[in-house]
Design a protein around this nucleic acid. Structure first.
Length: 774
DNA sequence: CAAAATGTGGTTTTT
DNA sequence: CCACATTTTG
């Protein structure tokens, strides 16, 4: 105990040992925030508090996991495991499952991820026959999400003058109706979206004081990490739980608040002292991470912001190199310059490894060109973001089956798999099912349970197929009662026909899908194994699903230790640190983003984002911008970011001989086609770019030409009536193949052909131009 | 029925 | 330029 307390500096020590009331810890970047939190929890445990009476809320699963590990090291694994530590979403989904009956749900509710909710919104917009261009699903989704974060339910929205007026003004007056229908559909489907997890928790605590009482006495101490990123719903949950005893400690840095687009409200941290007048404020101002130059540069930047809590972050590390500013002619060259610099620095005195580098950017779209540059130089990299494992089609399909087993009312899951693999239940039938469900205000599944009673207008053939589907799911539900999770998953992929479907595809993409499927099955086994090791005797499918639905790609740290350069958005980089950091694309309209340019508050948030980026660096920080960048298919001139001018030049050095801003100004007057700073090598690469494009174009034309030739060839119409299973056939495009199955009759005879080079395909004989070879 | 071609619209960040 | 939706084609 004494030993670990001695590892703290004075302000850290005070923050850890003060436990008498509300506490706000303002933790500057790199000031040992995580250390304070973990030691504080260890301290509380040491003082005799039971682990299960400590509630610790983090922003990501990863942060929770890491903190748990660190606490395990100090206080022991058994205690660490019993802590209530996790993200808001995971902790409160757990509580909601326990208390589901109070809010009209059952404990097996599904959690819709944002693509599920977007799909549902899209479906509703279509059903209402609204124009998808006026009612853009993404925009409707964010309106609903914002409402929920502000605790405005569908009913409240419908009566809220301000919101209604806003929507009328924006020419989308029916959002209130979409919201109502959306919410009703979620309810029928037994589903909650991310925002519901917080909204419903608030409703639970508001309407059931006895439940609130239970949890607020159960949790004797509450800690919240990254408090600056909480939204109103989260803030209120915490406030309700802490109200009685006031044993709450929130940690955050207002200078690093970067999630307002998701409803995070910086006022939560700025106003904390007003809500808890007796709170104590601790400031951690010594930065242990970065060199003085980096800290000073970041400070000079953030001081341009108006709203902030006063603090002086300082570093007693080495002075270090200045922050390096580097201009490039194009985005292409920028990537090239970054890649070159990484290699140079690796060869330099320090002998950095690849994992000492990170390239940070504002938008995911920027990653492609950087990847290209790194690949050309044979620099290994690891890219975060893009679509996560669980978002991939083949994975979501399997998960959808699993979701149906736990909750067959799950509309989005049902829609995904009712005709996958194809079983002749087409769009028309699905539309009828949805119509019947709306008519009777029940779930799609309940329509399937009683098609006749619900007046489903279908013929007997379709009815049979629906019945078969329903029986398959029912059999899964039955088997799930006895089979362990991993066996269940294997059974589902086999019996649903997914395996057959996936494994007949021999293309590169198909193989990667197979690998992903196997990876998923392995992940499920691993999950239940770990749970069993932790003493969980009956690991259920529901357990797995409830965990998986809140997992993101950030949590996938498989080859984290691999020696690779990291590429990620700045948002994703929060909380991480690297020896050397490149922040790329520092141009107006990109960073700061054009969306924020006429909103001072948004600009301040962008500036904080830049602050976060710079403070990720331990030893070297390099900022780059390009004078032209490809966007929407064409290259645009761009001027350097206004934020570059916010950094005190004393901490900055420039790559380029001329004063950077003079060059920038010149480029505003006249595009610098004869830029003096092109490196000779870069020139070569720049010039190869158009060549490649031309080559790409030519090959496209060639294939079109080839096709024209083939179309003209009179091979169609050959007699295929004698076609049998086992026949070897020739196809114009797919080449040679063997017929493995023939089904259907009359005009709709369909042959399944396994082609040597193109894998298995299903072809309608009336169209396919097949020649029988054997 | 499924694959390819064509058209269209759009970009911030994500638990 | 790219992802997505719709239309065309075999």
């Amino acid at each position: 105990m004494e030993e670990f307390l001695s590892q703290l500096n004075e302000s850290q020590w005070e923050a850890v040992t003060y436990c008498d009331g509300p506490e706000l810890v303002i933790a500057g970047a790199g000031s040992g925030k995580t250390r304070v939190l973990t030691y504080k929890i260890a301290y509380l445990l040491e003082m005799g508090l039971a682990p299960y009476s400590i509630l610790a809320l983090t922003f990501t699963n990863k942060a929770a996991r890491e903190m748990k590990e660190r606490i395990a090291a100090v206080a022991g694994a058994d205690k660490s495991r019993r802590l209530w530590m996790g993200t808001f979403h995971s902790i409160f989904s757990r509580i909601l499952r326990n208390e589901a009956e109070h809010i009209g749900y059952t404990s097996n509710f599904t959690i819709y991820d944002s693509s599920d909710s977007k799909n549902l919104i899209k479906a509703i917009i279509k059903e209402m026959q609204l124009d998808e261009k006026t009612y853009r699903p993404g925009m409707v989704q964010s309106r609903i999400s914002n409402a929920k974060n502000a605790l405005v339910t569908a009913t409240a929205y419908d009566q809220n003058k301000e919101l209604i007026e806003h929507d009328q003004h924006a020419k989308v007056p029916l959002i209130r109706e979409i919201y109502k229908r959306y919410q009703n559909r979620c309810l029928q489907a037994g589903a909650m979206d991310f925002d519901d997890l917080l909204l419903q928790t608030n409703i639970l605590f508001r309407d059931h004081p006895e439940v609130l009482e239970k949890y607020s006495t159960f949790f004797r101490y509450i800690l919240v990490d990254e408090y600056q990123d909480t939204n109103f719903a989260q803030h209120l949950i915490v406030q309700r739980l802490a109200e009685k005893h006031g044993r709450i400690c929130v940690v955050g840095d207002d200078a690093q608040s970067i999630y307002s687009f998701r409803g995070a409200n910086i006022d939560n941290i700025l106003q904390f002292k007003n809500i808890y007048p007796n709170c104590r404020i601790f400031k951690l101002e010594r930065n242990y991470r970065s060199t003085q130059n980096i800290v000073n540069a970041a400070n000079s930047l953030i001081h341009k912001n108006k709203e902030q809590i006063q603090k002086t972050v300082y570093s007693e590390n080495e002075e270090g190199s200045k922050v390096l500013l580097s201009a490039s002619y194009s985005d292409y060259e920028e990537g090239y310059a970054v890649a070159s610099r990484i290699n140079e620095m690796r060869m330099g005195n320090q002998h950095y490894t690849f994992s000492d580098f990170a390239i940070l950017y504002r938008t995911n779209a920027q990653s492609r060109i950087l990847e290209e540059a790194l690949r050309k130089r044979n620099i290994p990299y690891r890219i975060y973001g893009g679509l996560s494992f669980y978002q991939r089609k083949e994975i979501k399909d399997v998960i959808s089956y699993l979701r149906l087993i736990i909750n067959p009312d799950d509309e989005e899951a049902l829609k995904r798999v009712i005709n996958y693999p194809t079983r002749g239940i087409g769009d028309t039938t699905l539309k009828k099912i949805i119509a019947a469900a709306s008519e009777n205000n029940i779930s799609l599944w309940k329509v399937l349970e009683d098609p006749v009673g619900n007046h489903l207008p279908i013929n007997s053939g379709t009815a049979k197929k629906l019945q078969a589907f329903r029986e398959m799911i029912l059999s899964f539900i039955e088997k799930n009662k006895t089979l362990p999770v991993e066996e269940m998953a294997t059974l589902v992929v086999k019996e649903s026909g997914i395996v057959k479907e996936l494994f007949q595809d021999r293309s590169i993409e198909g193989i990667s899908k197979q690998e992903n499927l196997q990876e998923l099955l392995r992940g499920i086994s691993e999950f239940s194994e770990i749970r069993r090791e932790e003493g969980d005797e009956h690991v259920t499918l529901a357990d797995f699903l409830s965990e998986v639905s809140l997992l993101t790609d950030q949590d996938n740290d498989k080859d984290e230790k691999a020696n690779k350069v990291t590429l990620m958005t700045i948002h994703a980089a929060k909380g991480l640190e690297f020896k050397n950091v490149f922040v790329v694309g520092l141009e107006e309209d990109l960073f700061p983003s054009q969306m924020s340019k006429d909103n001072p508050r948004a600009i301040e948030e962008e500036r904080r984002l830049f602050y976060v980026a710079i403070t990720r660096a331990e030893e070297n920080c390099m900022l780059t911008y390009a004078k032209s960048r490809f966007r929407n298919g064409q290259s645009n001139m761009c001027s350097p970011s206004r934020f570059l001018r916010d950094i005190d030049p004393r901490f900055l050095s420039s790559d380029t001989p001329a004063d950077t801003f003079d060059v920038a100004r010149q480029s505003l007057r006249r595009p610098a086609f004869t830029s003096p700073m092109q490196q000779p090598k870069a020139k070569i690469d720049v010039s190869t770019a158009p060549v490649e494009q031309a080559r790409g174009r030519r090959s496209k034309e060639l294939t079109r030409l080839e096709q024209a030739v083939h179309t003209a060839s009179p091979s169609a119409g050959s007699d295929l009536s004698g076609l049998q299973v086992g026949a070897i056939v020739q196809h114009d495009r797919f080449g040679k193949g063997e017929v493995t199955a023939i089904e259907g009759s009359g005009n709709n005879v369909k042959a399944t052909v396994s082609f040597t080079h193109f894998g298995q395909k299903q072809l309608l004989l009336k169209f396919a131009r097949l020649t029988i070879l054997e």
